[in-house]
Design a protein around this nucleic acid. Structure first.
Length: 697
RNA sequence: GGCGCGGUAGCUCAGGUGGUUAGAGCGUUGGAUUCAUAACCCAAAGGUCGGGGGUUCAACUCCCCCCCGCGCUACCA
């Protein structure tokens, strides 16, 4: 592997529209923090940067919902997240934000640099304009009827009901969410980043160059993306919240949030090291690593590297160890249903138990596939691993030392193998030592390769081996006959305790601090570097050194505590409780007159037959008896109804909707559905069976 | 539908250019022990390695088909 002089480590910039939950932590922050702590212990030159991502339309919408300005809104969530990270102990060198002045300048310079090379494509197109407000409407600000499913409140970029991605012009009867008025089309100019031009380069750099050293999930997705062909991406928006496009003819334009956000890594570094930030971003001897969740792979592996390449003289990510997702109690985390463990709530409910969360999240870290966090598992891991194995080992060594040697480190005197018993002890010592050195090497190797689960497991092996050594040598029995041997044994297990204190520092910083404190171990500090350098057990406690009183590292999680957390999950489920969650009830549409309604021909029909559309997983092809005729209607309900269960049912439909061709077949009407808060679709039916063709009014 | 990643003991995961009885931790059961937060230590039970075909002397490991989970992508008028 190439040798690097220094490291630039980034964690995905969290979007400043809500608090952090354990999914975020497990995905991008805990692994990064563990890695960074490891690097620092090893004495590497490293910067660990992150910050809030504060631009984009979602922010302006969120702000509006909470009755604030975007500025106030991001201030609020930036503070919330920053505090949660601090309280949890994620050791960023800087936690910045993209609304900073430094970032504005950095992002604009970045844009300019690419612009000077004439790389951007400028294109004028018609976009919706709100005449009353005098602004161009971002896709998200336009709602209208979804051309796909008829959802009257589809957004301009996506219909949340059927999941289709849309462009505003596809919407039927578009309206502005700002004024409620119907917007008009007006020409506007935008800038596009020519991703397609980087295809060849990406193939070489990524597909060829990182075939073997990137995780399969990351590599696979990138390859799939590139193989599908890349297109220019728009990088500007008409919006008043964001970074102004630094060109004279770009009034009212800001950089699209995806363009400015990753540049935030650079800005944060600049802010942290104003004088020498460049070496962390431009020196090929610097290793750039992005920690992210899998939703971010394409940005960090394809788009941002292309931007860096385009801007010239920047280094590229050497690795992007993206994690998969974390589920909670068998279900996806959901902000809107409040199905989540919020970091700030955890810290409040279970104070002083940061390491426990770190340990559990790390042990189930979704490194290769989605993982599931359950409170039961949390309890089990804390009680039977942290308490029973690690905590217990440290504690019994401390207690033994106090009991037999008044807390003074006994002599490590070599045991002359004069008796059978002593010979046996020597033998056990050698075995344990060998085993532990093996663990240390594996641990370091795993850390080096982003396999944090495995690394933590090897760290725990030190305690396991220590426990076994104690059980095998039984110093409490020897105390009756051979105190010299007892001293020798305890000296060794104290050394192990010290080494565990050092080894667990990347995973369990609080426990590490406590161990050092119990060992009264400032003298340890020198041992630290040696340990990480030699990758083997090092001497940690000098003879005759006075220890401090033992203190318990971890405490069992009681059933009651478990219940409380489970209870909270259940209770919170039905309703959104968090302020940032969006209301599930759609806003009222603009008023209409009776004539508008009168134009609709709504009927009740009977589904005569239904079949799944070939090559579609959303569409069902229905044959419906409308009373007037038997016609074919395509409906995007395949994920909610099987052909069998819908056949024979009465349905409500719009009978005079203009026909529309989908996947080669003409659909002659539209089935009406009620959409529940959870997105499930239900049929709209008369309370009793009526004859087909009955009108609805 | 296409593409990508994954599907190994109750749980969390290892594994392999194909080759003796498929591994670990936790959980469970039994035993031993008391220095320790009823913890530690020992032992055992527990798997048709998602399913079905094929290649091979031999497949969990290679090939094909199918099923399930997750993600991206196209079609839900």
């Amino acid at each position: 592997m190439k040798k690097f002089k220094r490291y630039t480590i980034t964690s995905a910039l969290p979007y400043a529209n809500g608090p952090l939950h354990i999914g975020h932590i497990a995905g991008a922050y805990l692994p990064a923090d563990t890695y960074v702590r490891f690097l620092r212990l090893r004495g590497e030159d490293v910067v660990f940067v992150c910050g809030s991502d504060e631009h984009g339309v979602a922010i302006t919408i969120g702000a509006k919902k909470e009755g604030m300005t975007p500025r106030q809104f991001v201030d609020k969530y930036h503070a919330v997240m920053k505090k949660a990270f601090e309280d949890f102990g994620i050791s960023f060198d800087i936690y910045s934000r993209t609304s900073n002045e430094v970032h504005y300048k950095t992002a604009q310079d970045f844009f300019t640099k690419i612009d000077q090379q004439k790389l951007f494509i400028e294109e004028t197109s018609d976009q919706y304009f709100d005449e009353q407000e005098g602004i161009f409407l971002a896709d998200r600000y336009i709602v209208g009827t979804c051309p796909n499913c008829g959802n009257p409140n589809a957004y301009g970029d996506q219909c949340e009901k059927c999941g289709t991605s849309l462009s505003p012009k596809q919407l039927i009867k578009p309206r502005s969410t700002v004024s409620g008025k119907e917007p008009v089309l007006r020409p506007t100019k935008h800038w596009y980043f020519p991703l397609d031009k980087f295809e060849g380069w990406l193939k070489e750099w990524l597909i060829e160059g990182h075939k073997d050293d990137w995780k399969t999930n990351v590599y696979g997705q990138c390859k799939s993306w590139i193989d599908q062909g890349l297109q220019p991406r728009s990088i500007t928006r008409d919006l008043d919240w964001g970074i102004p496009v630094p060109l004279p003819d770009a009034k009212g334009k800001v950089l699209y949030v995806w363009f400015d956000a990753p540049i935030g890594y650079i800005s944060a570094t600049k802010e942290l090291r104003p004088n020498d930030w460049e070496k962390y971003w431009k020196d090929p001897e610097t290793r750039l690593i992005h920690f992210i969740g899998k939703d971010n792979i394409v940005f960090h592996c394809i788009i941002f590297p292309s931007m860096l390449k385009a801007a010239g003289d920047f280094i590229l990510p050497d690795n992007v160890p993206a994690n998969e997702f974390l589920n909670l109690e068998g279900e996806k985390l959901s902000t809107s249903r409040n199905h989540a463990v919020w970091l700030h709530e955890y810290l409040q409910d279970l104070p002083g138990r940061r390491d426990e969360l770190r340990y559990v999240l790390n042990s189930i870290s979704p490194e290769t596939k989605d993982a599931d966090f359950t409170w039961k598992d949390y309890q089990q891991k804390v009680n039977s691993e942290l308490v029973a194995i690690l905590g217990n080992f440290i504690n019994r060594v401390m207690v033994l030392t106090w009991k037999y040697f008044d807390g003074k480190v006994p002599s490590e005197k070599e045991l002359p193998g004069t008796t059978e018993k002593r010979k046996r002890i020597l033998d056990l010592y050698n075995k344990a030592h060998e085993e532990m050195n093996r663990s240390v090497k594996s641990m370091v190797n795993a850390l080096d390769n982003f396999r944090f689960r495995e690394a933590q497991f090897e760290m725990m092996n030190l305690a396991r081996t220590g426990n076994k050594f104690l059980a095998d040598t039984e110093p409490w029995k020897l105390a009756k006959e051979d105190m010299e041997a007892v001293g020798s044994i305890l000296n060794y297990v104290l050394t192990i305790v010290g080494n565990i204190g050092v080894a667990c520092a990347p995973f369990l910083p609080d426990a590490s601090a406590s161990i050092i404190k119990q060992l009264n171990g400032l003298s340890l500090v020198d041992g630290w570097k040696l340990f990480w350098k030699k990758e083997e057990l090092v001497p940690t406690v000098p003879e005759n050194h006075q220890l401090n009183q033992p203190e318990l590292l971890f405490r069992n999680v009681e059933d009651a505590e478990l219940e409380k957390q489970l209870e909270r999950l259940k209770k919170d489920k039905p309703k959104a409780v968090n302020p940032e969650t969006t209301s599930t009830v759609k806003p009222l549409k603009p008023e209409i007159v009776y004539d508008d309604f009168g134009k609709l021909d709504i009927r009740v029909g009977t589904v005569l037959a239904a079949e799944k559309m070939e090559k579609s997983n959303k569409l069902l092809k229905l044959t419906v008896d409308t009373g007037l005729d038997k016609r074919t209607i395509l409906s995007g309900i395949a994920q909610h109804f099987s052909p069998e269960e819908i056949t024979g049912k009465q349905v409500t439909l719009i009978a005079n909707l203009a026909p529309r061709k989908m996947m080669g077949i003409e659909s002659q009407g539209m089935i009406l559905m009620a959409e529940d808060a959870d997105g499930k679709l239900k049929l709209l039916q008369p309370s009793d069976v009526v004859s087909p063709g009955s009108t609805v009014s």
